[in-house]
């Protein structure tokens, strides 16, 4: 991109009703800053309502997925664990918000995520709850930081479906996009 065309880029983003757009390494400081910004911005708009908590929560789970699992990893501090990079976008429509995350992922894991999304999207609220409780009580896989229930939690909080797209990059990796709608009236 021509560096001086940033105004065009900015306008294009505004046209798409982007509330927040970040591409890069999702360090903890940034994640907290962005999550707090979302909370504050929407508390201004809606007061202390459940939609604000749901946006906050879905954003954190998607952003932490990038930080934990993205195949593109960067060492921010010498000797410290590498952190995942990717892209996360929040957009605003008339009656709903969309939070979309994208990151590089190993091909076999992309397939796993796709299968999980497919499976979870078919479950109703009660089935999601049962699945969530079962998964949460399973022992942690070696070296895994998360609770293994991020996607289930997102579905339960948003009460919508997980849209996903996987674009193959090469023999090793693909690009994974996950998108969730959060309606103003839940």
């Amino acid at each position: 991109m021509d560096k001086l065309k940033l105004f065009e880029y900015y306008n294009k983003m505004c046209d798409q009703n982007i509330v927040l757009d970040f591409q890069g390494v999702i360090s903890q400081d940034l994640l907290v800053g962005m999550a707090e910004m979302i909370k504050n911005k929407f508390t201004q708009k809606f007061g202390k309502t459940n939609i604000v908590k749901k946006m906050f929560s879905v954003f954190i789970e998607l952003a932490q997925n990038i930080a934990y699992y993205s195949y593109e990893r960067v060492e921010l501090e010498a000797g410290k664990e590498k952190i995942g990079a990717g892209i996360i976008v929040v957009t605003e429509q008339n009656t709903y918000y969309t939070i979309t995350s994208g990151n590089r992922i190993e091909n076999d894991k992309a397939l796993e995520v796709a299968n999980q999304c497919k499976y979870l999207n078919e479950l109703n609220e009660d089935e999601l709850k049962t699945y969530y409780k079962e998964k949460l009580r399973e022992p942690r896989p070696e070296g895994k930081k998360g609770g293994g229930v991020g996607l289930v939690d997102i579905l339960r909080k948003s009460k919508s479906k997980l849209e996903y797209r996987i674009t193959p990059i090469n023999d090793i990796e693909s690009f994974l996009v996950l998108s969730v709608k959060i309606k103003e009236v839940l």
């Binding site: 906050f56 954190i60 930081k145």
Partner: peptide, 12 residues
């Protein structure tokens, strides 16, 4: 106020 899923697992 808020627990992410990996914290929920630790509380469990």
């Amino acid at each position: 106020n808020y627990l992410n899923t990996s914290s929920t697992k630790c509380i469990l």
